[in-house]
């Protein structure tokens, strides 16, 4: 079972390398780095001066927490679009630490509970993505995307995002994902069905 998945994964990667398709979107807004990490751990909430270009006082504080997550989620999404299992695993691992460091203190208690549930669930999916073959990564990415959509509904985000929907994945039950570009690039099928799907909603 596993072997077939691995070999399809390898095949897919080989194919992508050959055709050299790469996804340019979402790269430009990735200014996140480890600097952000320590910012968050250091209780950013108390340090208005530490706020960066987001500017916007209170709401800016909240959204900046999700922005790094969104950026790393987009990395993961792009890796899956490119059928790149290794890059997806790496991005999944980074998201695990993002979720671990996510500070919910500035939210109301109901929101905190909801965020706690989302993060607990999402972290497990990110963990699985960091250590699974690409077929499994995509199964977990499906639920992780749902978690991210719900998380952003609470935290807001500075990014302009598109909520996309692929009706075929999951035995035609369909699956959502988030993208920073309007053009459809399908993370569930990659090169096999790159343009399958449509924009459901624009965020921001």
């Amino acid at each position: 079972m596993k072997r077939t998945k691995v070999s399809t994964g390898i095949l897919a990667i080989a194919l992508v390398t050959l055709t050299a398709t790469s996804c340019k979107d979402a790269k430009k807004e990735h200014d996140n780095g480890d600097g952000h990490h320590s910012d968050m751990e250091g209780g950013e909430g108390h340090d208005e001066a530490g706020m960066d270009s987001n500017g916007m006082m209170d709401s800016g504080q909240k959204t900046s927490k999700s922005d790094m997550l969104v950026a790393n989620y987009l990395d993961l999404k792009n890796a899956l679009v490119a059928d790149d299992e290794n890059a997806a695993a790496k991005a999944g691992g980074i998201m695990v630490s993002d979720f671990n460091n996510f500070d919910t203190a500035s939210f109301g208690s109901d929101e905190q509970q909801e965020l706690k549930d989302i993060i607990e669930d999402a972290k497990e999916h990110a963990e699985h993505i960091s250590e699974s073959p690409i077929g499994h990564q995509r199964e977990h990415f499906d639920v992780l995307s749902k978690d991210m959509i719900d998380l952003i509904a609470i935290t807001g985000t500075e990014e302009k995002l598109y909520q996309d929907f692929c009706p075929m994945y999951n035995d035609n039950k369909g699956a959502q994902w988030l993208s920073a570009t309007k053009e459809i690039k399908n993370p569930y099928y990659g090169a096999k069905m790159m343009s399958c799907g449509s924009v459901q909603k624009e965020i921001n």
Partner: peptide, 21 residues
Amino acid sequence: YSSRRKNSKLKSIISQIEDDE
């Protein structure tokens, strides 16, 4: 478990059993 987590676990249970994993 939260409903969200239950949902994830059920999904995984179903898929793992379907795939004989």
